[in-house]
């Protein structure tokens, strides 16, 4: 089990965009930390990118939090994206857990669902 590493920084090219880099494994034991990191990232800018390209594992608690973060961002009028860099672990996990889909959920007004399609 690789330890979870969370690093949040300002995107130098796009002011107001926070990038949360997630590396290692998100599991129930660290889900609380992950939630705090997401809340912090969302409070820091109008757009949040979660970079999961270096993720080595994510469980259901992690997937739920990503979904809820997107929901919260939408409610607050902020943008929320996931960049997976083609990370097969993340894609497999999201697919096998049944999160990947063709259109967004009922909250998804702006067609921004994080699970639709591939990399964005």
């Amino acid at each position: 089990m690789e330890e979870l590493m969370l690093e949040c920084r300002q995107d130098p090219a796009h002011p107001g965009t926070r990038v949360l880099k997630v590396a290692g494994e998100v599991s129930i034991g660290v889900a609380g930390d992950f939630k705090e990191a997401l809340i912090e990232a969302l409070s820091g800018g109008n757009e949040v990118q979660v970079d999961v390209s270096a993720l080595t594992g994510i469980d259901l608690t992690g997937l739920q939090l990503l979904c809820a973060a997107h929901h919260s961002a939408g409610t607050a009028g902020k943008e929320f994206h996931i960049v997976d860099g083609g990370n097969p672990t993340f894609r497999d996990m999201a697919t096998s857990a049944g999160f990947r889909r063709h259109t967004g959920c009922a909250y998804d007004r702006a067609c921004s669902c994080i699970w639709v399609g591939g990399d964005n």
């Binding site: 608690t61 939090l65 979904c67 973060a69 929901h71």
Partner: peptide, 26 residues
């Protein structure tokens, strides 16, 4: 075919990270 149903999710602040909110239609 597995579809995770996420419609009942609360917003991030209210979510207990150790609870299960999702359900599945298979």
């Amino acid at each position: 075919t597995v579809v995770a149903q996420t419609a009942g999710f609360p917003c991030l602040e209210e979510m207990n990270p150790e609870s299960c909110y999702v359900y599945w239609d298979v």
